[in-house]
């Protein structure tokens, strides 16, 4: 299996054409763009502001900014970069009002959460095999595909993601569901490459743990 899946296909497909249609006041084209980006926008906003309602407002405001600025958009940057640039500006302003001028990066940067795999999965210090697995991880290759793709498995992943911090959730959704590059994620969330990687790793590790727990219980 490849580690860099993007289930949504090429998200930039036909953007120039979409913009041209929106300029001609084609409501369907606008609706298509909303379908493509609105939820991602809410998610990104959510990493800057306190509550979901505010994040939704920030996204709405961004769309208004998009329409206003559309005639001036020359397509030098990608539509996505432009759109999320507007969003980040608005979100940051709101964030300041809510005493959260940056995402939680500053707080999470020093990684206070501890290891991503529980220490008791390894032999303890002092043991001849200290730091090695004390029990080997399960073999998921042996699990039939239909079980891995079952609705319950999806629900397990969904609820693990829902339980993440706002910033971890934004990063894993943008990277692993929406298929963004790490550079794009760093730019829009204003976090460093290292920080982005730590957040993504933690998020993935928590989803993995939820899957492990689920697959063991239902196996």
């Amino acid at each position: 299996m490849s580690p860099s899946p993007s289930a949504q296909g090429d998200p930039h497909a036909g953007e120039a054409e979409l913009i041209a249609r929106i300029r001609q006041r084609d409501e369907g084209a606008f609706a298509e763009l909303v379908d493509r980006y609105h939820l991602q926008m809410v998610r990104v906003a959510q990493s800057f502001v306190r509550d979901h309602e505010t994040a939704e407002e920030v996204a709405q405001e961004t769309w208004l900014g998009f329409l206003k600025g559309l005639d001036r958009f020359e397509g030098r940057s990608s539509l996505k970069t432009w759109l999320f640039g507007i969003l980040a500006n608005i979100a940051r302003t709101r964030g300041v009002r809510e005493n959260r001028s940056v995402p939680f990066s500053a707080i999470q940067g020093d990684d206070p959460e501890g290891p991503t795999v529980a220490a008791d999965r390894f032999f303890p210090a002092g043991h001849p095999s200290a730091g090695a697995w004390s029990s080997i991880p399960d073999d998921w290759e042996a699990i039939p595909e239909h079980r891995l793709l079952a609705n319950e498995t999806r629900a397990t992943i969904d609820s693990a993601i829902a339980g993440l911090s706002d910033l971890q959730r934004a990063v894993i959704e943008l990277r692993d569901i929406a298929g963004w590059s790490s550079e794009e994620v760093c730019n829009v969330l204003s976090i460093s490459e290292t920080n982005q990687r730590v957040l993504l790793h933690r998020a993935r590790a928590k989803v993995r743990l939820a899957l492990e727990t689920y697959l063991r219980a239902s196996g």
Partner: peptide, 28 residues
């Protein structure tokens, strides 16, 4: 396991935009 986790996460579909939010945007 980690690869499969990423793969399975990637297979999740993005949710649909809630009707209410969409209507408001189309209104705008």
């Amino acid at each position: 396991q980690f690869r499969q986790t990423i793969q399975l996460t990637g297979a999740l579909r993005e949710d649909d935009v809630p009707e209410e939010a969409k209507e408001r945007l189309l209104g705008a």
